[in-house]
């Protein structure tokens, strides 16, 4: 019971350990000028997060497509590494993955900067989930499509890339889009290795000014904006490539 109370309330003898009680946050005391003063840092953070997410999404998509192609190959030797990769990534926390890349790899001589580490971590994490999503799309393609390609003399690889891939991506595009939005939001975890994305700047501004509410209120809005931008970009991409009429 004691340990339960400790878990629930922390070490404060049963009292919650919030720094401020709710009454202390009143509109008259809010001061957003500090946020406005640091607009350049925040803009830098937004642009960096956008670039980080877009790069991560691009490579996640590449990993997803290549992974599914490997998964469909006839050889167990090619399939098994993909299955293991997906299992490993989907069943471990992202924070641990990024720490592993950033802190553990240097011990075996691979030293990566925070930005590169962040991109790799987002790409492999998003890629593992993409493999499973895209695989579902590929499975939904009627067998007749594959047979039509085969009957024309096309190879397995050509059938995958020219016949199956686009309809498969189209069928799971909404799920893939929400996975990529999740990737965008997960990029905030990269602040833990000081990649200079939006949350990193927010933490810095907050620690210098102690204006927690104003700072986090602002970046909440900014993340909403970033998500909308990414979603708009993905939907434009989808309209461009997947807008053919269907039966």
């Amino acid at each position: 019971m004691d340990s339960f109370r400790l878990w629930l309330h922390g070490h404060g003898n049963g009292e919650a350990v919030f720094p401020l009680s709710l009454q202390e946050i009143s509109l008259s005391k809010l001061d957003f000028s500090i946020v406005i003063e640091r607009w350049a840092d925040l803009l830098h953070g937004v642009l960096f997060t956008l670039a980080l997410s877009a790069t991560g999404i691009f490579f996640a998509l590449v990993i997803g497509v290549v992974g599914v192609a490997m998964r469909r190959s006839g050889s167990r030797l090619v399939q098994v590494p993909v299955i293991m990769f997906v299992e490993l990534i989907r069943n471990t926390p992202f924070l641990v993955q990024i720490f592993f890349l950033f802190f553990a790899l240097p011990l075996i001589g691979i030293r990566l900067g925070p930005t590169v580490t962040a991109i790799i971590a987002l790409a492999i994490n998003g890629g593992a989930y993409s493999i499973e999503i895209i695989r579902g799309g590929v499975d939904s393609i009627p067998r007749g499509q594959v047979e039509a390609g085969a009957a024309l003399g096309m190879s397995r690889r050509q059938i995958f890339s020219d016949i199956i891939l686009i309809p498969a991506l189209r069928s799971i595009y909404p799920a893939l889009t929400s996975q990529f939005i999740l990737l965008t939001l997960t990029s905030s975890v990269c602040s833990s290795i000081s990649a200079s994305e939006l949350t990193h700047f927010a933490q810095r501004i907050e620690s210098e000014t102690f204006r927690s509410f104003e700072v986090y209120f602002t970046i909440t809005g900014l993340y909403l904006l970033i998500s909308w931008l990414i979603m708009a970009a993905l939907s434009a991409l989808g309209n461009r490539h997947f807008s053919y009429p269907n039966q």
Partner: peptide
């Protein structure tokens, strides 16, 4: 050997002309 199927099996994402040229180009 050319084959025609019961359910047509045209490639939905390609225009009619591209359905016809795909194997010519790839194969």
């Amino acid at each position: 050997v050319g084959m025609v199927f019961q359910s047509f099996n045209l490639f939905p994402h390609l225009k009619v002309i591209d359905n016809c040229t795909l194997a010519l180009r790839r194969v």
